[in-house]
Simulated assay, not measured.
Amino acid sequence: MARTLYNRLGELKGITKLVDDVVDLHMSNPTVSPRFVPYMDQPDRLKLIKHHTVHFFCAGAGGPQEYKGRDMVTTHKGMNISEQEYLAVMDDILEAMDKNKYGDEEKKDVLAILYSLKGGVIRL
């Protein structure tokens, strides 16, 4: 039986580590840090955002977690996220995947998911 992306990413534990690493990279990425650094003063809000991100990712990768957050359009509406910001986020995700030693297949599958979400994030 084929393993799901969820399995290949290390299930809940692996995806949680990946999200933590991605957020750390966002905090120091000059293209997107202005959107993330303010959450350093809101640790409960940052924790909730990470929780929703982990569950969104788990559910989308074939895991058993139920995502109970807002949809992508509602979440990003009014943020006017640029193409450059979106690409910077993708770069951070790939860097975190490299750090966590994920293979090319996992990266390809994650990139496919990210590209499928692009229309619900940019310039809303």
Rank of each mutant, 00 (worst) to 15 (best):
K17I: 06
K17G: 00
G63Y: 08
M97Q: 14
S82L: 10
E105W: 08
L25E: 03
P30D: 11
E85S: 01
T31S: 06
L111S: 08
A61N: 08
E83L: 09
K13V: 13
M40H: 07
H55Y: 15
I122V: 14
A88P: 10
N100K: 15
S116T: 08
P34L: 11
L117W: 09
M40P: 00
I93S: 04
V23Q: 10
V89C: 10
H52W: 14
A112N: 11
L12G: 00
R123G: 00
D44P: 00
S116D: 13
L124W: 10
Q42H: 14
R35W: 06
L9R: 14
N29T: 07
K99M: 12
L18E: 09
G10N: 06
A96G: 09
P34S: 10
M72Q: 04
G69I: 04
Y102F: 15
L111H: 03
K50Q: 14
G120A: 01
K107A: 02
L114M: 15
L9G: 04
S116F: 05
T16K: 14
D41L: 11
V110W: 12
F57G: 05
G63D: 12
Q42M: 14
K118I: 03
L5Q: 11
D91V: 09
G69T: 01
G120E: 04
V54F: 05
V89S: 13
I122Y: 03
S33T: 04
H55V: 03
H52D: 13
R45L: 12
K13I: 12
R8V: 01
R3E: 13
T16Y: 01
D44C: 00
M27P: 00
T4N: 06
L124Q: 13
D44L: 12
H26F: 15
L117D: 07
H26S: 06
A61G: 05
D92G: 04
P64E: 13
A59F: 05
V73I: 12
M72W: 04
G10K: 12
